[in-house]
């Protein structure tokens, strides 16, 4: 299935969760925030939060800024 991840279409496996997506991307959950279809997903829910075809996901972190 395809998801829209940070503005790019990305292929991900059926049955994927937020946790498995982060693992696939090699992103550590500690320092990121995940938004699924405009709702923030708490870190404790990553394992049980399924992803669906066409989901819009934003994964953000901190960068240098003033």
């Amino acid at each position: 299935m395809k998801i829209l991840l940070n503005g790019e279409f990305v292929e991900t496996a059926e049955g994927a969760t937020v946790a498995s997506l982060l693992q696939q991307l090699d992103i550590s959950r500690e320092r990121v925030a995940v938004e699924l279809n405009a709702d923030i997903i708490p870190k404790a829910h990553y394992e049980k939060q399924p992803l669906c075809d066409g989901d819009k996901i934003e994964i953000v972190h901190f960068v240098g800024g003033g």
């Binding site: 503005g7 990305v10 990121v32 901190f62 240098g64 800024g65």
Partner: peptide, 18 residues
């Protein structure tokens, strides 16, 4: 210290400030 909130790089080729 201030930081900005931005999308992560999906290719993970770049290091992170933190």
């Amino acid at each position: 210290i201030t930081v900005a909130v931005r999308r992560v790089n999906l290719d993970r080729s770049k290091e992170s400030l933190l």
